[in-house]
């Protein structure tokens, strides 16, 4: 891309660039640096012992487990939504699209609260489940449900607009040539949207790993049992174990970094998929 000519005097241009650098440094770069400075304040040994502490290890495992359930569920839903809403027009379509976006607008605390209300012991469903020995709230299933809720739109909102803009010509050609639904979907549609799908999965994974508010409401904060990594960070911080909290936070920051890198890489490819 050719750099657009600039119409401002040089001094104005330099001033604006300087202001932009200052803003980013103050709001984004300094906090980023602070995470690692605080995490390594007492040296690499202290960092290592903080992240290999049994509670921290359990929190990492639980976080990975939750993401391993939430992300595939999200991908399957996103593909179904992409097919139904991207390839077809029908009455009520825009309402469905708005409802899919709803979890982005809802407060994470509200998202957590709804599951406490729906599955808590005072609700009929929760009471029935408790009598059958299944705990949802203040247990792992609740954490998974809350995570699926807050990540719900990620893959769908990448795939629906893309599949819509790609149209149905290629799929119709495949059908005319005798391909069945699965052949059409896996040989024609999926290869056309694979980068956008991966992009959505990356965003979904980052959010699933880092979700705090919704999970905080449903988890019950039992250390070594229902603490995910973000909740472990909070627990340590509230006990003034700052170095340990930042050590755990540095792991989450590395995940965020990986997601940002993957996102930058994938968005270039995903851009090529748009017709």
């Amino acid at each position: 891309m050719k750099a657009p000519r600039s119409r401002e005097p040089r001094a104005v241009r330099l001033l604006l660039i300087g202001l932009a650098f200052a803003t980013i440094a103050l709001f984004l770069l300094v906090p980023l640096a602070a995470v690692f400075v605080e995490a390594f304040r007492n040296g690499a040994g202290a960092w290592l012992s903080a992240v290999s502490d049994p509670d921290a290890r359990h929190a990492v495992k639980l976080t990975l487990l939750v993401a391993a359930i939430a992300v595939p569920v999200n991908a399957v839903f996103g593909l179904a939504a992409g097919w139904a809403l991207g390839k077809f027009r029908f009455p009520g379509r825009s309402l469905v699209l708005t409802l899919i976006d709803l979890p982005f607008a809802v407060s994470p605390i509200v998202a957590g609260l709804v599951f406490v209300l729906a599955f808590g012991r005072s609700s009929p469903l929760g009471g029935w489940l408790t009598r059958h020995g299944i705990e949802v709230v203040f247990a792992v299933p609740g954490i998974v449900l809350a995570t699926v809720f807050v990540t719900f739109p990620f893959v769908a909102r990448e795939l629906v607009p893309l599949m819509q803009s790609q149209g149905t010509d290629e799929e119709e050609a495949a059908r005319v040539l005798g391909a069945g639904f699965f052949t059409t979907f896996f040989r024609v549609t999926l290869p056309n949207v694979k980068w956008a799908l991966l992009y959505g999965i990356v965003l979904c994974t980052a959010r699933a790993v880092g979700e705090f508010g919704a999970v905080s409401v449903v988890s019950g904060h039992v250390r070594g049992v229902t603490n995910t990594l973000p909740l472990h960070v909070e627990a340590l911080y509230n006990e003034y174990a700052f170095q340990g909290a930042f050590a755990a936070a540095s792991l989450l920051t590395l995940v965020a970094f990986a997601a940002m890198l993957a996102k930058a890489f994938l968005s270039r490819h995903a851009g090529e998929e748009a017709p």
């Binding site: 569920v73 179904a80 809403l85 029908f90 409802l99 899919i100 998202a111 729906a118 059908r175 069945g180």
Partner: peptide, 26 residues
């Protein structure tokens, strides 16, 4: 194109179970 019904079914079922029913409970 085939598959509209099942795809919409999965979409609406997921949406109802994960998002709409809990919000309705609230």
């Amino acid at each position: 194109l085939p598959g509209f019904g099942p795809a919409l079914g999965v979409t609406l079922l997921g949406l109802s179970l994960v998002v709409l029913a809990p919000l309705a409970a609230l």
